[in-house]
Nucleic acid binder design. Structure first.
Lengths: 294, 294
DNA sequence: CTAACTGATAACCCATAGTTATTAATTATT
DNA sequence: AATAATTAATAACTATGGGTTATCAGTTAG
C-alpha cells in the first residue's frame, strides 16, 4: 500500500511481456525470479488491473496488458529521446533562440541571419515575435528573449548593443502625388502635408530622427496619425491622409499603392541594432555568437 | 554511477522546477531538503546535463531544464492516462475520451456527439470540462485532453482542426427593450448602447468578429462589461446594463429574461471547430474517429 | 510416479532513499 | 560593522523495501 509506480516496474513488465516467462525475464534483467514476481505483483496492485494470465504453466498478456505494453514502449522511447535531447541542449548543439524585432528588420537582417546560422546549425529553432523597442528591452532583461532587433542608441546596464544595418530614410507618398523621383529635391517640399508616423512609444529614436530631419530643414511636421504597423501607415498614405517618412528598406515586402522617394542630402540614418544580455545562458545562442559577430 | 532514472527523479525535478526553491519543493514532496538536493544532483549526473542554475541564493532552470520540464509534464500526463486506461480496459470498459469545450458547444454539437457515439460504443466513458480556447489548446498539447471544441481559425503545429458547426450571431436584449423582431433591421440601431461581451482572452476570434460586425456598419461599440460565462452575460443584459452579441445557438438551454434577435445581412458567422492532436494515442478516440469524421 | 519444469511464498540481507546535524555562503537587519 | 536569517550543499547515520536464497505447490513430460 502507498507504493509508487517507478520506471523499474515498467522495464520489468516489458521484459516479462517479451519473454512471457518469469525466470527468463529475470535472467535478462540480472535479478532473481522471486524479486521479479514480487515487483510485477506490486505493479498490478498499484494499477489495479491484472496484466498477465498465469495458467499454471504459461504466462500471457491480458487485454489490458497488451494495451499497456504498447504504450510503455512508446513512453520509454519518448523518455529516451527526451533525455538525449536534454543533454544535447545542455551542450548547446540544439535548442531554441528567441528573437524579437521591429517590423522593418524582417525585410533585411533577420532572413539573412536565419539562412546563415541554419547552414551550420540546422537543429537550432527560432521563435520570432514583432515587438516594440521598449518591450524587447524588457523581455531580454527578463530572459524571455535572446536577441532583439531595435532602433536604439543606448541600452540599460547589463545589455549589449551592436549596429547591424544602416538604412536611409524615404518619403512615402500616394501613387498619384505630384512629386516624383525627378522633382523631389528637398524634404521641405512636403512641409505643408500631414505626416503619418510610427508611434513614438514604438520607437522613440525613429520618431526623434524624423523630427530632426524636418527641423534641420526649417519646419515642424504636423503629425495627423500614428501607428505601430507599417502596413497601416502605407494604407493611410494610399488613402491620401498624409505622407510618411520610414526606413527605405520597408519598401520591399509590401504590395501597396504608395511610392518611395529616398530623401537626398540628409545626415540622418536609420540604424538597426541587435541587442542581447551580456550573461545570456542559452547554449544555443553561444553557438551562433561567432557567426553573428556578437 | 550505474544508477537508473526513476519517475521519482522526475516528480522531484518538476517540484523544484515549479517552486524554484529546494526547501519549499521538499516540503511539498514531504521529504527533507538534503534528500531532494541529492536526488536532483544524481539526476543531473545520470542525464549528463545541468538542469538548474544555483547562483548561491536563487535557483533557475537552464535551457535544457526548461525543455525537460515541458516534456516531463507531457510524459506524466501520458503515463497517468495510460494507467487509468489500462484499469478501465481490465474492468471491461472500452476506455475514456476527455473533452474540453466552450460553453456554447454544450447546446449543440456535444450532446449530438455523445448520443451518436454512445449507440455504437456504449462502454466508452467521457469526461467533459468547460474551458477557454487557449486552455484547451494547451491541454491537448500536454495530452490532458483528447478533443477540444473551440472557436479558433488556426492551431499550433501538431494539432488538427475541423469546423463542425456554423452559427449566426444574435443580438441579446432585455425583454422590455423597444426593438423587436419586426423593428430590428440593422445592428447600428444599437450603436449607442453599452456592449457586454465574452472576454477576448476567452475567445479572441469571437471578440474580433463582434468588433468587425460593428465596424462594418460604421461604429465602434462601447464595451462596458466582459465575462467568460454566457449566463453572466445574460444576467447583465436582463438587468439593463447593456446589450450583447453572441452565437445564436446560445438561446437554447438557458431560461432568462432576455430576447434574441438574429442579426440580419451580415457575412460573419460563429464557427465552432473541433481540435485534436495529430498523433493522439487514445484507442477509444480511434474507435469514434470515423463516426465523428476526424 | 519420479524428474523437471513452472511461478508464488517466506525469511533474511543490504543498497540506498531519506533522515538529522552541520557547514559555507549570501543577504537582510540592527 | 556586526549579527541574524536566509539559502543549498555535505557528512554521517537510519531504515525502508528491493533483491536474495531456500522452499513450496502445482503441472507436464518421460
Amino acid at each position: 500500500m502507498g507504493y509508487q509506480l517507478e520506471l523499474r516496474h515498467f522495464s520489468y513488465f516489458l521484459a516479462v511481456a517479451e519473454e512471457l516467462h518469469f525466470r527468463k525475464a529475470a535472467d535478462k534483467l540480472f535479478i532473481s525470479q522471486p524479486g521479479l514476481s514480487r515487483q510485477i505483483k506490486q505493479m498490478e496492485e498499484i494499477i489495479g488491473a491484472r496484466l498477465f494470465i498465469r495458467d499454471k504453466r504459461n504466462v500471457n498478456l491480458t487485454e489490458a496488458g497488451h494495451y499497456l505494453r504498447k504504450e510503455l514502449d512508446y513512453i520509454f522511447n519518448h523518455i529516451d529521446f527526451t533525455v538525449r535531447q536534454t543533454r544535447l541542449i545542455d551542450k548547446g548543439n540544439e535548442g531554441e533562440i528567441r528573437i524579437g524585432f521591429l517590423g522593418s528588420a524582417m525585410q533585411t537582417v533577420i532572413p539573412q541571419l536565419l539562412v546563415k546560422t541554419n547552414a551550420d546549425f540546422p537543429n537550432i529553432k527560432y521563435s520570432l515575435e514583432e515587438m516594440s523597442n521598449h518591450l524587447q528591452v524588457e523581455a531580454i532583461e527578463k530572459d524571455q528573449l535572446d536577441l532583439g532587433f531595435v532602433r536604439l542608441s543606448r541600452v540599460p546596464e547589463g545589455l549589449k548593443i551592436k549596429s547591424v544595418y544602416t538604412d536611409t530614410f524615404s518619403l512615402v507618398l500616394p501613387k498619384n502625388h505630384h512629386l516624383n523621383v525627378n522633382t523631389f529635391k528637398r524634404i521641405n517640399q512636403v512641409s505643408e502635408e500631414n505626416f503619418i508616423l510610427f508611434s513614438s512609444n514604438y520607437s522613440s529614436l525613429y520618431y526623434d530622427k524624423i523630427m530632426s530631419i524636418c527641423e534641420d530643414k526649417g519646419f515642424t511636421p504636423t503629425v495627423s496619425h500614428k501607428s505601430v504597423h507599417a502596413q497601416t501607415i502605407f494604407k493611410l498614405v494610399e488613402s491620401g491622409l498624409g505622407v510618411a517618412i520610414v526606413p527605405t528598406s520597408l519598401q520591399y515586402g509590401f504590395d501597396l499603392g504608395v511610392k518611395f522617394l529616398e530623401i537626398p542630402k540628409i545626415p540622418q540614418k536609420a540604424v538597426l541594432s541587435v541587442i542581447w544580455k551580456e550573461n545570456n545562458r542559452n547554449p544555443a545562442l553561444q553557438k551562433i555568437r561567432s557567426l553573428v559577430g556578437l
